[in-house]
Design a protein around this nucleic acid. Structure first.
Lengths: 196, 196, 196, 196
DNA sequence: GATGAATGAGCTTTCATTCAT
DNA sequence: CATGAATGAAAGCTCATTCAT
C-alpha cells in the first residue's frame, strides 16, 4: 500500500494537534504515535506548519463534502438547513478532534490561521448561499444573511465543542432537531415575537 | 498610585495573549509592552499560567457584569435576550482581545483551560436561565434550553470573532438586531416553518 | 536588646544554609524564617557570601571553644584525645546544622570555601598539637601526625553526619567511648597487630 | 564508536560538578567542556539531576570495584583493612574529582543526595563486614563496628580531600601505611592505652 | 525511502541585590 | 534602622529542524 506511513502520520497528527494544540504538539509525540522516526515526518511534510495545513485542508474539505454533498438539491431551503445541522453534528461526532482543532486554531494572524479561515469562509459561504436562496424563495427573512450563516455555523460548533468537553456519551446528532428548530423558527412561540 | 505596574502587566498580557495565543506569548514581550522588567511580572504573578488565569478570571467576570447587569429585571425573556445579544456584542466590540482569547484558549484539557470553561459555563447558564424563564412564561418553546443557550452564545461569539478578523470598521453592535431576530423568531417567515 | 534582628537572621541562616546548602539557600527564605524584610538582611550583612562567612566564622570559633576549652591542660595526651572526641560529638549533637554545613560547604575553590578551610585547618592543627605532644611524651607513636589529626577529625565528623541523616534518636555522645578507643588503641586486639 | 558523545559528556560532567558543585555547575559549561551542544546532553540524559545520579552511580560502583575487588579473600581482616586503606587512597588519587563530589554532595535531603548516601552506605557496609569478621576471628575488638566502619571511611576520605585541596604533589597512597597503622593499632604505644 | 543523533535558538523561571521611602 | 517592590542576568530545559548514514 502506498502512503501507509503518510496515513499513520496524518492520523497521529490529528490526535496530537487536537489534544495539545498546534504550539504544544511536538513532532516527537506525533512520530511516536505514528510509529515512525521523526525524520520520516520530514520526508513527507516539509515542516510542522505544512503538516498542520495539509491536515486542516483535508479536514475542511471533508467537512464540506460530508455536509454539503448530503444536501437534497430539490428540497426547500428549510429542509436543506435541517440537513446542514444534522450532518455537521454528525461530522463533529465522527471527527471530534477536528471540531476542537477548528475552534482552537483558526483565530490568529499566523499564516496557517489565515489559511484556515479562508477554508472556513468557503464552507460558511455555502450556508450563506442556502439562506439567500431561502430569502429569494420567500421562505426566509433576515436583513443579514452573512450574520445568519456565521451564527448558524458558530451555534452548531460551540454546542458541539461544549458537548465534546462534557465527555457525555450522548450522540451529538441527537441535538439536531432542537438546534434546527431554533435556527428555523426561533425560540419564540408563534403567536408573539413582536418587534421593538 | 498602587498597582500601577500590575495594571500595566495586565493590559500588556491581554494584548500579547490575544495576539499570539497562550503558548506563543512570551513573558519578554509582555514585559516589554508593560515597560517593566521581566522579573517584575514574577513579583506580581507566580507564573505565566497564573497571570493568564487571573486575566481570564477578570475578563469573564467583566463579561458577566457587563452583560447580565444590563438585564432589565422586569422585562420579558424576549426583551432580555435582545439585551444579551446587544451587550455581548458591545463587550466584544470593546474588548475584542478578550473575544479572541475566549475562542482560542478555552478548549483543551490543561488546568487553565478547564478553569476557563468553568467560568464560561457560569455565564452561559445565565443565558440558559433566561431561556427557561421564557419557557415558563409561555414566551419560548424549545425542547433543549442548554442547547439553545450554547448555540446563542456560540452564534454571537463566532459572528463576532469572524468580524474581528475581517478588520472591518463596522461596529459589532450593528449586528445586534439581525442576530436577535434570528434567535427569537428564527429565519423562517411566519406563515410557514413546518415540522418534519 | 541590641542585635535582636541580627540574631534572628543568624539563626535563620544556619537553618536554611544547612537545609538547602549555600547555593540553594535563598535570602527570601532566610528573611521569612527570621521574620524580617529581605532588605534588612542587607542592612546587617553586605551579601549572601558575607552572611555565610560570618556564620561559619562564628560556628568554627564556637567549635574550637566548645572543644578545646574543655581540654584539661594537665592531663595526658590520651585523656585529651578522649575529651576531644566527646566534646566534638557533643558539639555536633547540639549544632547538627553546623556539622552539615562543614561537610557540605568546605570543599571548593570559592573564596568562602578557602576561608572556611583556613578555619578548619586551625582547629585540626590543635588536634595535631595534641598528637605531637603525645609523641613527645612517648604516649603516642605515628609517623604522620597531620594525617592522624585529619583522620581523627574526619572519622568523628563523618560518623556524626551519617548519624544525623539516619535521624536516630540516639545521642551522638554515646559513640564517644567506642570512637575514642578506636583512635587510641586501634581495632586490633593487643596481642597482635603485626607489621607487613 | 558508539557513545563517544556520552563519554565526553560524562567526563565533562565529573569535571564541572567537582569544580563547581552540583548547584553551581551549569549545563552550558558541561556542554562546552564536552564539546557538544547543550541539547545533546539532554538527548542523552533527561535532566541535570539524572546526569548527576548516573555519574555518581558509576563512580560509587567503580569505587566499590576498585577497592573491594582487591581484597585478598584468604587474608586476615587486618590485612584486608590495609588493602582498603591503600586502595581507597589510590582511587581518590586517580579520581580526586570523585572524592570531592562524594564529600560535597552526599549530605542533604534532596532525592539525589539520599540516593547518593544509599550507595555510600553500601560501600561502608563492606568495610563494616570486614571489621565484624575481624571481631569474629578475635583479631579485632570494638563495641561498635558501624562506628568503626564510618570513622575508617571518614578518616581516609577527609585525609584525602584535605590533601587534594592542599595541591601537594605527594601521592595520596603514601599516607596509606600511617593511616592503616592508626586504624589497626591506634595511636597509643603498646605499653599503655588505659581505660578511664 | 527512512532513520535518529545532534543542534542551538528560545523559552520560563529564579534570585541576589538595589534603592526610594 | 527597616522595608519590599523592582530589577535583569543567568540557568535549566524544549523542540523544530537537519543531515550523515
Amino acid at each position: 500500500m502506498r502512503q501507509a506511513k503518510s496515513h499513520a502520520i496524518f492520523n497521529a497528527a490529528i490526535d496530537v494537534f487536537s489534544e495539545r494544540g498546534f504550539e504544544k504538539a511536538t513532532m516527537d509525540e506525533i512520530a511516536a504515535k505514528a510509529k515512525v522516526a521523526k525524520g520520516t515526518i520530514y520526508y513527507h511534510f516539509n515542516s510542522k506548519e505544512e503538516l498542520f495545513v495539509f491536515l486542516v485542508d483535508e479536514g475542511t474539505k471533508l467537512l464540506g463534502e460530508s455536509v454539503l454533498s448530503k444536501l437534497p438539491q430539490t428540497a426547500t431551503a428549510t429542509e436543506q438547513l435541517r440537513v446542514i445541522v444534522r450532518e455537521q453534528l454528525e461530522f463533529f461526532q465522527n471527527y471530534s478532534d477536528f471540531c476542537i482543532i477548528i475552534l482552537r486554531e483558526a483565530w490568529g494572524e499566523d499564516t496557517r490561521q489565515r489559511e484556515f479561515r479562508r477554508m472556513l469562509v468557503h464552507y460558511v459561504r455555502a450556508i450563506q448561499g442556502i439562506v439567500e436562496n431561502g430569502i429569494a424563495c420567500g421562505e426566509f427573512a433576515t436583513s443579514d444573511p452573512e450574520t445568519a450563516a456565521w451564527s448558524i455555523f458558530g451555534g452548531i460548533s460551540i454546542r458541539a465543542i461544549h458537548h465534546i468537553f462534557t465527555r457525555s456519551t450522548i450522540n451529538l446528532v441527537e441535538f439536531a432537531p432542537a438546534l434546527a428548530e431554533q435556527i428555523i423558527t426561533g425560540l419564540a412561540t408563534s403567536h408573539q415575537a413582536g418587534e421593538p
